[in-house]
Nucleic acid binder design. Sequence first.
DNA 1: GAGTGGTCTAGACCACATT
DNA 2: ATGTGGTCTAGACCACTCG
Lengths: 239, 239
Amino acid sequence: MLDPTSPIPLYYQLKTILLDQILQGKWLVGEFLPSENELTKQYQVSRQTVRRALAELQREGRISTHKGKGSLVAQPKLEQDLLRFYSLARSFSKGPHRVSSRILHRDRTSAGPVVARHLRMQATAPVVIISRLRYLDGEPIMLETSYLPSSMCPDLEKESNLEALYDYLEVTYGIYIRRAEEFLQAVSPTPEEAYHLKLPQGIPVFLVERISYTPKDQAVEFRHSVIRGDRFRYKVELH
Amino acid sequence: MLDPTSPIPLYYQLKTILLDQILQGKWLVGEFLPSENELTKQYQVSRQTVRRALAELQREGRISTHKGKGSLVAQPKLEQDLLRFYSLARSFSKGPHRVSSRILHRDRTSAGPVVARHLRMQATAPVVIISRLRYLDGEPIMLETSYLPSSMCPDLEKESNLEALYDYLEVTYGIYIRRAEEFLQAVSPTPEEAYHLKLPQGIPVFLVERISYTPKDQAVEFRHSVIRGDRFRYKVELH
DNA sequence: GAGTGGTCTAGACCACATT
DNA sequence: ATGTGGTCTAGACCACTCG
């Protein structure tokens, strides 16, 4: 329940509670949350406070509100993952794409200075490294290396089925990812990257670095991805 | 003043009025707006209504609010354009960057099939074309070409000071841009692009296509930008 | 007609900054 | 002490959706 004596505003407490419940699947995507009136009764706060909590969730894209109907859970954006890159060649083909991946490498070593800085941890602390080659319709398009603090996900390197890494983190370790930052560059691939992606000479690639955070803003994953630049494009919606 | 009989909410009317006054320089950057109490008296609305208007302006980065002091006009975000690209080399330098631009070309011609498709207009209808070379600290980093329907902004091609295009559209034509889509690719520059950006051989570039929309989802601008890929990076926040 | 979210008001208490 | 923005309440009316 809410704590009126806390220095944390009530609307923010409520927002956090609702978001946690959404992430834990109390209401699935497309299902309605309780109405504002019900929430005021349930949490014993005014309607404005409820509305402010809901407004923030809406602004962050977790719910959508509809006059006369109610508020419902929206499709999460983080799962777009691969989906943020759209195939240029196939952008107009109707059918769904066939996505697969192959693990190139799994290991557990010390973080090293670069990864440690991104994950805000000690350079000597252990991390799990997972390298994956991801395919779209059988064609290699993305070379991806993830680094996670071993302390947060012990024995992750022993798991072989990592198709849906974020789902696995949720189910196995109770790690939820609330937000992420991505940094894109346009660069020439290294010979190794060009080999794995079967890239002809002179084709540039996206270099995408992603850092994922928990609800408490703890860095969970540093991900380094290389994507073929000429055949795929990255879409961003600005509001 | 505000019109209580209008279907447009009071907070939105007030927000629009305040934004216009900011854009017209009634208060300069760093100057304080009237306090919330003064605004309630001046516009004869409740404090919550004033606060909602101010909250939207704050969320859009036009003002900043400070407890116990007041609300003041914020530094414009360089149209948010350049800001999405962060200099790698200078990312840790403290001082503000010096941004400038030079117009390479201005014209008014028919749209042609590609631009017409993006702007959802007739290929034979006229568009204004503006090519700009943009500099950061004196170094050319971005080559940008904008296409706008001439019907929406007549005589725009005759304007010479287009540093802040979006502000100019707002003040002169009353065109507000609510949202935009961007599509990124990583490609090799054309010889002309490499020349303007003074790019050494083999350096990839971002190709960014942006379509901007009004609140009524009418396409206002199609923009084609080329940015040096190795020295700048594009940041995306995922929620 | 009943329930929903959208807007608006009048008033209150708080933490913070300035005088 | 005064004024500022930040939070919160109780109540009201509206437009919309659905049965």
